[in-house]
Simulated assay, not measured.
Amino acid sequence: MKLGAFSISLTVKDIQKSKEFYENLGFQDLGGDITQGWLILKNESTVIGLFQGMFEKNMLTFNPGWDQNAQNLDSFADIRELQAELKEKGIKFLTEADESSEGPASFTIEDPDGNPILVDQHR
């Protein structure tokens, strides 16, 4: 199963302080909008998202259709295909993508320890 680009989405209290901290670790701006409370940072192949006031917990994030530089892939498994495959395997969903839709969509699942996993397709 190809889930797309991987990152960790961090819930932060002060996005500016978190940005400065991770920049000191060598992370650089990859995208986002600090005025909206979210930034994407990258250090080599490691990608993190900083999110203030958007999520309750840190979570693993996968983006079908993107590579680690948030560039579109020519070929990828649509999120609805991934969702159907996981349902067949008995995975329980916290949120689901609308199976009748096309394009951007997301779903959320949890691992056995309660760690949230967001699969978020942007195109």
Rank of each mutant, 00 (worst) to 15 (best):
S7N: 14
I8R: 07
T11Y: 11
T11L: 03
V12D: 09
K13M: 10
D14G: 05
Q16V: 13
Q16H: 10
K17F: 09
K17I: 12
K17N: 13
K17T: 13
K17V: 10
S18H: 09
S18L: 00
S18E: 13
K19N: 15
E20D: 12
E20R: 09
F21P: 00
F21K: 07
E23F: 06
E23H: 05
N24A: 14
N24D: 12
N24Q: 14
L25W: 14
L25G: 03
Q28T: 14
Q28N: 14
Q28K: 12
D29K: 11
D29Q: 13
L30S: 04
L30A: 11
G31W: 08
I34D: 06
G37F: 00
L39N: 02
L39V: 05
I40F: 09
I40R: 09
I40A: 11
L41S: 00
L41K: 01
L41V: 00
K42E: 01
N43D: 01
E44H: 04
I48G: 12
L50M: 04
F51C: 14
F51R: 15
Q52L: 08
G53C: 00
M54F: 10
F55G: 03
F55S: 08
M59K: 15
L60F: 14
T61G: 07
F62D: 02
N63I: 01
P64Q: 07
P64R: 03
G65V: 01
W66F: 13
D67L: 00
D67V: 03
D67F: 00
Q68M: 05
A70M: 15
Q71W: 03
L73Y: 04
L73I: 01
D74H: 09
D74Y: 05
S75T: 13
F76L: 01
A77F: 05
A77L: 09
I79D: 07
E81Y: 08
L82S: 04
Q83P: 06
A84D: 11
A84C: 01
L86N: 15
L86E: 10
K87M: 12
K87Y: 11
E88F: 02
K89C: 01
G90F: 12
G90L: 11
I91E: 02
I91S: 02
K92P: 11
L94E: 15
L94T: 15
T95A: 12
